[in-house]
């Protein structure tokens, strides 16, 4: 009985996790298709693995380099960029799906001052793999 209850609990928990993943994909995927229609307003979408992370020490944010199939270099702005499952956003490796808007910048300390790294916009929402 306890085994069945434990298995049911596991199934319920797994069902929840799967549902959360699907909802996340739907939200971000929905944003993807919506953003495609408003590209002219400076909205972009991206999808691919995080290839590199630059820690923008002067501006207090990060620049993510996203690999193909939909690559780009975008700012992750704490407080402005919404994080979704599985939140693995500050390291190379995880796959991402997200969107953002133009603007934002990343500046990094280079010993004698700050230098600006080129970016294509600021992330507004991003979901990742685990």
């Amino acid at each position: 009985m306890n085994l069945l209850a434990s298995r049911d609990k596991k199934l319920t928990r797994k069902t929840k996790i799967i549902a959360i993943i699907l909802i996340t994909i739907s939200i971000v995927g929905g944003a993807f298709f919506f953003a495609k229609k408003v590209m002219g307003l400076g909205v972009f979408v991206f999808g691919g693995p995080i290839v590199w992370v630059d820690y923008c020490t002067c501006s207090g944010n990060m620049r993510l380099t996203i690999g193909p199939p939909v690559p780009g270099r975008y700012v992750f702005q704490p407080g402005a960029s919404m994080l979704y499952l599985f939140y693995q956003v500050y390291r190379p490796g995880p796959w991402t799906l997200g969107g953002g808007t133009a603007g934002g910048s990343c500046s990094i300390y280079v010993g004698t001052g700050c230098a600006t790294l080129p970016t294509s916009g600021t992330i507004r929402m991003i979901g990742t793999s685990l």
Binding site: T57, C58, G60, G79, L83
Partner: peptide, 22 residues
């Protein structure tokens, strides 16, 4: 250990970074 401390001589607004783990 996160490599985003404010560099010496640089003024920057404090940030709160969400940090998740499994």
């Amino acid at each position: 250990t996160f490599p985003l401390d404010t560099p010496p001589g640089i003024t920057r607004a404090p940030i709160e970074l969400p940090y998740w783990f499994y």
